[in-house]
Design a binder for these strands. Structure first.
Lengths: 155, 155
DNA sequence: GGATGATGTATTGTGCGCAATTCAATTGAT
DNA sequence: ATCAATTGAATTGCGCACAATACATCATCC
């Protein structure tokens, strides 16, 4: 009994659930990250740079972009803001002058200690069972992988 | 053998999977919606207004906002752009001059016919089984409901 | 009925995302 | 060695999101 155009019903759309859930989750992060003086995308960049710092790696802007699926139009100003706050330093490549590499400063690395409690605090704030969240995460990653397989790295 | 701060690993985070999957899905919509001259948030607003048009309802800006979890700071300029394109008309309430109501124009309603194919075309483009997507949608809605139960309508 | 608070939208400012373009540096071909 | 093509980041422009504020209108209380 469903009309053919029922596919346009807002509540039937996966995309809308994804869109809304994402914004709701980011909204939950916001007050926690505000304590660190970070926005959510800045937090993601710091996660990437903290991981690199563990191996004493500087990352190219493009490598950060590959990890987060973001381009220089987003990352360049974001990294400049982090640099302005003294959390990050940016430097031109020595061998190849086109490349810009990024790494956390000492202050940037120290911020990691404060950030450690964020994931757990968020988990408590959501009130959803961890195993359900992990299952959700895996399903989202699987869908993402399928999407990227179909259109290999448009970016 | 996992260190306590492993929670900061990017790939372990649900939020990152959500963030990335959402952007990937919206990216899939973009070329389809470009044929209609709509952005993704504009498309969501049109979905809401099309549903209201079926019952011949004008919606308050705040009602559109409640449905999409968006505020006037986002909706006012977005609706003005839709109005400029002749897809929507906005009018001050007659009884209450504070409220602004919105409804699709004839042209706006006609666009619905073109939009009908979008969900199905997107489904094909993803290459993920529909039942998996429906399960994902339901899980996302359940998580969203839990989030909103914990912080009832911050907005 | 005039001050007071509440309500609903609009405005301003900041920070993403992303397309498109620009520009310098590098690579490759002849 | 020179020119063309490619690469990598930066820049520009536009449209969200969202916080904070402004502003007009309505409701209430005395």
């Amino acid at each position: 009994m469903t009309a053919p155009e029922d596919g346009l019903a807002l509540d039937s759309q996966v995309c809308f659930a994804l869109y809304t859930a994402n914004r709701a989750v980011v909204a939950r992060y916001r007050p926690l990250l505000a304590e660190l003086g970070l926005t959510y995308p800045q937090y993601l960049v710091m996660l990437v740079l903290w991981e690199a710092a563990a191996g004493d790696h500087r990352l190219k802007v493009s490598e950060v972009g590959d990890r987060l699926r973001l381009d220089s139009g987003t990352l360049t100003p974001l990294l400049k803001r982090l640099e302005l706050r003294g959390l990050v330093n940016r430097a031109r490549g020595e061998d190849d002058e086109r490349v810009v590499t990024v790494a956390v400063t000492r202050a940037g690395y120290d911020l990691r200690a404060q950030a450690c409690s964020v994931p757990e605090r968020l988990l408590c704030a959501t009130g959803v069972a961890p195993e359900r969240l992990m299952a959700l995460r895996d399903e989202l990653r699987s869908v993402l992988a399928e999407l990227e397989r179909q259109a290999p790295s448009v970016r």
